[in-house]
Design a protein around this nucleic acid. Structure first.
Lengths: 198, 198
DNA sequence: AGCAATGTATACGATTATTGTATAAATGCG
DNA sequence: CGCATTTATACAATAATCGTATACATTGCT
């Protein structure tokens, strides 16, 4: 148990910031507002974070670390490729919902450094993602001639379907819709039963 | 048709401001942001409004004018007292939903002048409200010994029930819940069928 | 108790954002 | 055309926000 060391107020600040950022976007939220919401004083904030941008980075790091840990588990246990895709789609949806609001994206124009930081972390996830696909190819779960980059592009493209409200409305809930995409990907990628993984 | 004279951009500014205020509260929204959202330039804004606070007042005036007009209609036509109460409850809910968010209320501490303005307009609606009750009393629709101020207090108190989520969840939708309150008020107020409106 | 870590309250100069205006020029529109 | 409306930009004045310094309080631990 190494996770017990974080001071209470630091946790409170992080949670308050996460909530406020999602509601109002990065720009509109001030350090003092975060402190008020967290029930902490401004000095406590600056004890743990150099400024608002560093707090944002800290949040992202935690978010991606969580995702990373989940991927670790999945790779070690004997989960199917299909389940891995399911998780990745869910992660992607989560990232999109937190990063999607225009009021958050606009902030990148103000602080390009954050854009870089985000892209860098994203790149790591992408590499990990490629590795999983390659591994699945070796195990014969996925057709070997498929390029990981192409597969990723297809996933991104298919997720755009989620913006089509009329389409999503066909399904009982969003999860069912994601499952449909998942199934489509899986059976579209499956090696033909008879041929030798051509 | 007297409503065609408002310049396009003024309307656009008002609508953009209304949308942004409801989403972020008064304080967080800047004049320039309103202009961007409205697709207008800052100079156009200041052509029609002295500043943000005057725009807020303008919005309220429109809102209350609308409500006023509806009350006019209701009083002239032969609508029942019950229907009037229904409308008033609906108006009250609307006003609460727009003025309810903490981020809007907090602004009153910054600009007390707005608080005064809001109270003043509210007072007018209250007077109108009292008048309707008195009129209903004269027509024998409402027990004569009831004081309008008391009735208003009861309405306010009953609307607090709406904050009880478990209670509201009993009804299929919010409208049905409001109807229940309405019915309760009506039959609680109804003059006894036999006695002479004592 | 006693020590360290954690947290508070306030005031403050420096920085940045926002306001509201002036100016000159551009866009409909009948 | 001529008039009202709108735009773009630059700008000084004002206000909000940042980040730090200081001195003091609280909590937790042994």
């Amino acid at each position: 148990m190494k996770t017990k060391k974080e001071p209470k107020k630091k946790t409170a600040i992080v949670q308050a910031a996460d909530k406020l950022f999602k509601q109002f976007g990065f720009k509109k939220v001030t350090v003092e507002e975060i402190c008020e919401t967290a029930g902490a004083s401004k000095m406590t904030f600056y004890k743990y974070f150099a400024n608002k941008n560093e707090l944002i980075k800290y949040l992202w790091r935690m978010m991606f670390d969580d995702a990373w840990a989940k991927l670790d588990e999945l790779e070690n246990e004997g989960t199917t490729f299909q389940e891995k895709i399911q998780l990745i789609l869910k992660m992607k949806e989560e990232a999109t919902s937190t990063m999607g609001a225009q009021y958050i994206k606009d902030y990148f124009n103000v602080v390009p450094e954050l854009q870089d930081f985000y892209n860098q972390i994203l790149a790591e996830v992408m590499q990990r993602f490629f590795k999983i696909i390659r591994h699945a190819q070796e195990k014969g779960e996925v057709r070997k001639t498929i390029r990981p980059e192409f597969f990723l592009a297809v996933v991104n493209q298919l997720m755009e379907l989620a913006k089509n409200e009329q389409l999503v409305a066909i399904y009982d809930n969003y999860t069912e819709f994601v499952l449909e995409i998942n199934n489509f990907l899986y059976y579209g990628l499956m090696p033909a039963p008879t041929e030798e993984n051509r």
